[in-house]
Design a protein around this nucleic acid. Structure first.
Lengths: 121, 121
DNA sequence: CCCTTGAATAGATCTACATCAAAACAAGAC
DNA sequence: GTCTTGTTTTGATGTAGATCTATTCAAGGG
């Protein structure tokens, strides 16, 4: 169930984008993860999983929250999985997903503006 | 030159995605901005502008950093502009772009993981 | 004025992606 | 075993997007 992709290339993970120019490989890796969260359904899936009690959510819970079909949700979960943002585990009948907080943290760190003061504007 | 789109809908800006489930409208707004930075060239453009001396960069400088044609760079700058991430200003012959740090800060805040401790993993 | 240089737009093309219905697979219940 | 429920895969389809060339627009310089 895990496929553990680059997890946001380690050397691309920590220097804020506004501090120094991103290298081309760094940009390629980051773009993949941002693409994964550039869809409303995937953003909500991620949020539902991350904010769910116990830090994990069953696919059955997730599907009900949307107007699209099951296969479509499954597709979006796969995209999130392959980007390294979430991971799924089957326990009996159901499959449970949880987020990788480190990846979220790295994305957040990359986007921090150069001057922290502006963050409070 | 400015077109001032939603700038990341104000009510969607500050609660981390992992704290509570994103509403559908919030997700739609956020997804637009993430889509804007889900391309390697746009990420590097954003980084080049944000990290450039004086906080602004001329299109002429930006174009040289890539293997694609001028119109393609112009297209990507437009996408970033329409997402509210950057803004351009013509001064004489050249056009200068600068980032909106508040938007960057909000995106960063949304991605912060639920448990701050995990950010240091 | 016309010409040059910088930048944006228009139109065309090719690829990537979101979605669905149908089929396959996984795990239990009977 | 067979049936049922939950999840994923497959295949097809329509739309969005990245890129190019050619054209247009903007601002100065002769």
């Amino acid at each position: 169930m895990s496929k553990q992709l680059p997890l946001v290339a380690m050397d691309a993970c920590c220097s804020p984008l506004a501090r120094e120019p991103l290298s081309e490989p760094q940009a390629v890796e980051l773009a993949k993860v941002f693409k994964a969260i550039s869809d409303p359904i995937r953003l909500r899936l991620l949020s539902l999983i991350a904010s769910h009690e116990g830090g994990e959510a069953c696919v059955c819970d997730l599907t009900d929250a949307f107007d699209v079909t099951g296969p479509t949700i499954s597709h979006h979960l796969k995209v999130l999985r392959e980007s390294g943002l979430i991971d799924g585990e089957r326990r009996g009948t159901w499959v449970y997903y949880r987020v990788h907080p480190e990846v979220l943290a790295r994305l957040s760190a990359v986007l921090v503006p150069a001057d922290p003061a502006t963050a409070l504007a």
